[in-house]
Simulated scan of single mutants.
Amino acid sequence: MASRSRSLQYYVLSRLLLLPLMLLTIVTVVFLLLRATPGDPVDAVLGARAPEAAKEAMRERLGLNAPLPLQYVRYLGELARLDLGTSLTSQGQSVWRIIQQHFPATLELTVIAMLIALGVGIVVGSLAASKPDTPVDAGGRLFGILTYALPTYWFGMLLQLLFAVQLRWFPIGSRFPLSANPPQGPTGLYLLDSLLRLDFGAFFTTIHYLILPSLTLGILLSGIFERIVRINLKQTLRSDYVEAARARGIPERRIVISHALKNALIPVVTVFGLTVASLLGGAILTEVTFNWPGLANRLYQAIEFRDYPVVQGIMVFFGVIVAIASIIIDIVNAWIDPRIRY
């Protein structure tokens, strides 16, 4: 028992020591990619026809005239002080302030979308695996292929066309009605803040606006979980202990839910961590499609206007989230399955 505990501690320590290297790699890649892409942020701010003297003055003020290695060292120094810089296009607004304003919307969308993805993926995958070589199994495989292949923006616009334009059940976009005041609270999460204020009208309005974008992102990600659950549950249902349970006369439904599904869900933990990156990537397309005022949409706008500090700050912020999520998932996996530690 002591040796298992020590092996887990060593594994956790090794993963934590890798975290600074992962973050440095993310920061370096973001820095180099921004400067390798064509275009000049000064032109985006001042306009291509601005006087050259004004452009040079702004480049000097932003440090863009300095050699690339010096810019990199300065950038690392700012990050060490947790200074993400100031936006070039938002009237001097700090990047931290932009993240504070827009991240709650992205967090709310991604959490609901992940719950939908897990629920739909596990249910469809379990049904397909429990009825092998049947139309249900074929439908599960088709569902996994389609949800993986469909473009996010196309599926989102399809839902908008059907449920917002034709049926008029849901709004076509945005996070809250422009004519109403959104819930105010300490978290910035409309669902949670409205519950804290016992404002159930605002709570259900938030859900009404959240349904289409979260369904878009959640259903498209659910295919990943469906395939993992279906494949692993099929293998588990062929194992010896499941056959022994059948021999004892235990109903098939109870075998699937109480015995096989638990073991089949272990790989889902790993995929859950890896899906965080896909979730943030899909959030960009979903937020742009639905005009969702989240951080991913703000990143898209910053890329469009070549706002270096905002792009760098948001990308580093997302990178930190993905890196920390990967470490946490690795640790949880090692705790669940001791074989991973060796």
Rank of each mutant, 00 (worst) to 15 (best):
A53P: 04
L191H: 03
N263K: 03
L62Q: 13
L195P: 09
S214D: 04
L84H: 00
V322D: 05
L62I: 05
Y190C: 01
L142S: 13
R168E: 15
F170V: 00
Y11I: 09
A54K: 15
Q91I: 00
L88W: 06
M315T: 12
H208I: 07
P20A: 09
Y209H: 14
I340E: 01
P213F: 06
R6K: 12
G77I: 07
S239Q: 11
R298F: 03
A117V: 02
F200A: 05
R253V: 12
L215G: 02
K262Q: 11
Q312S: 08
V27E: 06
L115E: 04
I255D: 00
Q91H: 13
P251E: 12
I26W: 05
L82V: 14
S7G: 08
V288E: 14
V320G: 06
S87N: 03
Y72V: 08
L146N: 04
I116Q: 01
I211D: 04
D240C: 03
I266L: 14
L76E: 04
G85C: 03
G185R: 04
A44C: 07
V29D: 02
L159F: 08
G77N: 10
G281T: 14
Y72T: 09
S94H: 02
L8N: 02
R168M: 09
L18I: 06
T289P: 04
E226T: 13
L142I: 11
T89I: 12
V124S: 08
R49L: 13
F31R: 02
E252C: 10
R141V: 10
P151G: 04
F318E: 12
A245K: 08
L167T: 03
L196A: 12
Y209A: 05
R15W: 07
N181P: 06
L285I: 08
R49I: 05
L191D: 09
R254G: 02
I257F: 15
A54G: 05
G319F: 08
E60N: 13
K234G: 12
D330C: 01
H102A: 14
L215Y: 04
Q166Y: 15
K262Y: 05
V322N: 03
G282I: 08
A36W: 08
I112H: 01
Y342S: 12
V123G: 06
I255T: 01
A149M: 07
T28V: 03
A105Q: 10
F305M: 14
L279Y: 12
R59E: 09
A325I: 08
T289A: 10
W335S: 10
T147N: 02
